[in-house]
Structure formats: structure tokens, C-alpha cells
Amino acid sequence: MFLKFIVAAIVSGTPLLFGTLGEIAHEKCGHLNLGVEGMMSIGACAGFMTGYYTDRFWIAILAAFAAGVLSALVYAFLTVTLMANQNVTGLTMTIFGIGLSNFIGVTVLATTSSGTLKLSEHIMAQMGNIHIPVLSDLPVVGQLLFSYDPFVYVGVAIALAMGFYYNHTKVGLNVQAIGENPAAADAAGIRVTKLKYLNIMIGGGICGIGGAYCPMIINGGKWISDSVDGLGWIAVALVIFAMWSPNRAIFGSFVFGALRVLKFYVPKSVPVPAAIYDMLPFVITALVLILTSMGKSMGKSQPAACGLNYFREER
């Protein structure tokens, strides 16, 4: 029972992990992106539909990534080059993304005779839980570590790579400098615009993969409107909970994933309403937000220039 709970928590936390990593990539270079939900929705639609028509899992993932990158390109063009208000642009992206994704879903749905969109067994097998001989058969450990769908491992790998990128590579440190003080970074010869574009687009791509997880795994390969269902907003919250660190995001998404499935595993005799579990992630995040703002510990709070657009010729 407990083991099953842990496994369920990791599965339910995985889309959050992708969304969070994408948002961290955005915030680290100074862009508060409220469009994660939209980018994830677009990724969900692109990934699912590609999987539906090509029956190839990896192509579907690439499509989700590419769609995320494209939506992030729109966001980057508007906020980096055209210096549009980040909040409004992000919200627009959310409305647009959810709308577009549902729209395409409904339109494709109308072409089917059965009235449902379901991925074929063929692709479901490709993205099913992996099985490594010996390792996956180990008791407990096998189930706990070596028996997830491929997304889970991709997500953790991206998180670790991002942690390395920000803390141990020159480019990553440069990006952090942009997030803290773009003018100083620019003066130091860092290519602010180029790096912002790159990071925002890759972040968007990561969000897109996370979106694809929702219809493909969580909904069991069946298309439903609004499949991302607010996970993108939880991801925005999770960035705060993880205090802008990709490594802590792994742990954070696991905790939030656990909170999301907890209600199914708590015995009926415990008199806690389900809504409390759904509310908890946001209450915790709000508390973390307050505590970090009280502490002002460097490296554990939002990048200083986050939310502000940078215009080179302004001083």
C-alpha cells in the first residue's frame, strides 16, 4: 500500500516536474512566465495528436517539445524583443494555449466515428513502464526505481542536467547573472538577448513535454479537453517551493505529487475533506513565499530582475 502510494506520487508529480523545470528556466533568466499552463496545453495537444497519427512515442515527445518551443518563441519575442508586460503576455499565452489545445482536440474528435480519441496499443506499449531485466524484478527497489514510464527518467535527467548547468557551467552562471541584473550582465559582455531567447525556448519545450504527459499517461492515452487541468499553475507554485533550484524541484514535485494522490490512500476513517489535500500545496507555497521574503537568503529567492523587461539603452 505504502509502496503503491510512493509510486503513484512520483507518477502524479512528473508533469509538475517538467512544468517546474520549464518555469525555472524562464525565471532564472528574468522572465516570470504565467503561461506555463498554456505552453503545457499546447505541448499536450501536439504530443498527443502526433502520437495518435504516427504511433511513435519519441516523435510524439519531440513534437510536444517543438510545440512548447514555438509557443515560448512567441512569448520570448513579445517579452524580450518587444518588451511587452510579462504578466499579461503569460496570461494571454495561457488562455490562447488552453483554447487552441481544446479547439484542435474538439476538431479532431469530430472526425472520428467512435467519438473518442485513444492512442493505439502499439504506442501505449512504447511509453508503458520500462522493464530492465533483473533490476526491475528486484523486490521493492525494482518497483520503486526501475519500473516507471520513460517520462519519469527523462524528467529527472533534465532536472539534474539543469542543476549542473546553473551551478557548474559558465553559460548557466551567465544566465543567472542575467536574471539578477541584466544591465550588469550586459556590461560584462554576456549576450543577454540571445541567452534569454535560448533559455525561454528550451524552458517552453520542457513545459511542452510535461503537458504531453497529461493526456498520454495520466489520462491513460485518451484525449479529454482541459487535460492539463491547472497543473501548470501548480508548477508555478512549485518553483517557489523548490526555491528556484532544479534539484530541489525533483523533491518538490514528488511532495506535490504525493499531496495530489494522498486523498486516495488515506483510510476513509480519517475525517479530512478532500479539498484540504488539494489546497495544501498552495498553502505551503504561500508560506514558503512569505518565509523566503522574510529571510532574503541569496540563491533561495526569486531572481532579482524577474518580471522586469530589460531595455539596453535605459539607465
Binding site: L32, L34, G230, W233, A237, F282, T285, A286, G307
Partner: peptide, 9 residues
Amino acid sequence: TLFTLMLNY
């Protein structure tokens, strides 16, 4: 921005 967002949920 982030705080009011949390309060929504």
C-alpha cells in the same frame, strides 16, 4: 504576483 496566485487556489 505569486502570492495572489496561490490565494486563488
